[in-house]
């Protein structure tokens, strides 16, 4: 990774510290600054409320010309998070063709929070969960809460 990229990540970390989105904690290790650990509380106005989720943000070598990679380390029932051991997300800003180099990680963190309040079933990675979200909201919320109880307490 280039010196420029490192400088940029440091700078972004500073900005995040100064203006951390509520309900979020970032663990930053200077010896391995391309991997951030984020602890995220389920937003109050969402069925994820009461859950604590661990996320990883990995910066590729080409950062910021390629987007950071987000993965949920805590299992989460969500149409936009892959239901496997990777817990990956690939929508909006996180896609190579959407991401622009001036975009910042903090925007990614806000996107994740927004998606927890309002999932995007039209750009889903888990079509069956998306379908349930669209057609049977009650069942969806029940499953979300079930998973929060099981994995995110």
């Amino acid at each position: 990774m280039s010196a420029g990229a490192k400088k940029r990540i440091m700078r972004e970390y500073g900005e995040c510290m100064a203006d951390t989105p509520p309900g979020m904690k970032i663990n930053f290790d200077e010896r391995n600054m391309t991997k951030w650990e984020v602890l995220l509380d389920g937003p109050d106005q969402s069925p994820y409320a009461g859950g604590h989720f661990k996320l990883e943000i990995n910066f590729p070598n080409e950062y910021p010309f390629k987007p950071p990679v987000v993965s949920f380390k805590t299992k989460i029932y969500h149409p936009n998070v892959s239901n496997d051991d990777k817990g990956s997300m690939c929508l909006g800003l996180l896609r190579a063709d959407e991401w622009k180099p001036p975009n910042k990680v903090v925007a990614v963190l806000r996107l994740i929070q927004t998606l927890m309040i309002e999932p995007n079933p039209d750009d889903a990675i888990e079509p069956s969960i998306a379908n349930e979200y669209k057609e049977n909201r009650k069942e969806f919320e029940k499953n979300v809460k079930d998973w929060v109880k099981r994995y995110a307490k």
């Binding site: 420029g4 400088k7 940029r8 700078r11 910021p64 180099p101 001036p102």
Partner: peptide, 11 residues
């Protein structure tokens, strides 16, 4: 450009 800061690399 005078006073320019690059929004990508922060230079």
């Amino acid at each position: 450009v005078k006073g320019f800061v690059c929004d990508i690399c922060c230079e």
